[in-house]
Write a protein that binds this DNA or RNA. Structure first.
Length: 272
DNA sequence: AATCGTTCCTGATAGC
DNA sequence: TGCTATCAGGAACGAT
């Protein structure tokens, strides 16, 4: 599923290939993807505009239009943003299609229809954006800041790291991968981590995200980049989707358990 | 204020 | 073989 590294990969693809493109027409094939907004004002505001640039905040893709408005996209579990030629077959799960001048299009496809997009004059006015915690690859995300955020949180560290107001952009895959690298069990109480463990966790989060971006993300299931290609970080996973396999660090068998309604992978041998 | 369960959705898959 | 039940999960939401 698209988390920070996947959304960042798509952002870079679109920045390189779609920036400057003019939208001739918007096709709304699934109005539900527009988060309750009626299709008519949506298409009307976008038609004829130019994509000025692509930014990212957490897992949100921010598409700036020349009108000053921003198209805020969240891919959730199965969303993809595919830049293709009009000669290419339209994906079966195409939900919103931006027909671009010059024979190309930008397709928002989404199997499970959980993904959303909305138009905002100022993205910071959206709760989903202003409530976000620090960018884990930004200067404000320090070990001290992570330690502060975990203080007073009695829930399991895995759940707390999935809270987007603590750190922005982590999902199930990278939380579990970071916890393994840090040697910390997902079930540990967040506020119970020692300072050295918090420091290790901070380093692990940064390291795993950087490595995943370098590998263009994890294509465990439906994730694809802006050209429809797979990422390859999944082959570097140490716990996620590795149930029953040997831990690459200590050799113990990786276990999977439903924990708080989510599949949770960890190594009982080296995660304490 | 934090936390927990529920809900949304549909293709893939396991089980019979 | 073919059908059906189950599963995957980010985040909003309501209840506690």
């Amino acid at each position: 599923m698209p988390e920070l590294p996947e959304v960042e990969t798509v952002r870079r693809d679109l920045q390189r290939r779609v920036r400057g493109a003019v939208i001739e027409r918007v096709e709304v094939r699934n109005p539900g993807s527009l988060r309750g907004l009626a299709p008519r004002p949506f298409t009307g505001e976008i038609r004829g505009r130019r994509f000025d640039g692509f930014a990212r905040r957490g897992k949100h893709l921010l598409c700036a239009l020349c009108s000053g408005d921003t198209l805020v996209v969240h891919l959730r579990m199965t969303g993809v943003m595919l830049h293709q030629s009009v000669r290419d077959p339209l994906p079966a799960m195409a939900r919103i299609v931006f027909h671009l001048r010059g024979g190309r299009r930008l397709v928002f496809a989404d199997q499970r229809k959980f993904g959303t997009m909305e138009l905002a004059a100022d993205p910071l006015s959206l709760p989903a954006i202003w409530k976000l915690g620090p960018e884990p690859l930004g200067r404000t995300f320090t070990a001290a800041r992570l330690r502060d955020a975990l203080q007073g949180r009695t829930g399991p560290v895995k759940s707390v790291l999935l809270d987007q107001s603590v750190v922005a952009g982590l999902g199930n895959i990278y939380v579990l991968e970071a916890l393994h690298r840090a040697g910390i069990s997902p079930k540990r109480k967040a506020c119970g981590l020692r300072q050295a463990e918090t420091a290790r966790l901070h380093r692990s989060i940064v390291a795993v995200l950087r490595a995943a971006i370098a590998a263009r993300g994890s294509s465990v299931d439906t994730y694809r980049d802006g050209q429809g290609k797979r990422g390859w970080f999944q082959v570097q996973h140490r716990v996620y989707d590795r149930e029953g396999k040997a831990c690459k660090r200590c050799g113990a068998v990786i276990v999977k358990e439903q924990f708080r309604g989510r599949g949770t992978y960890w190594c009982p041998g080296c995660q304490r």
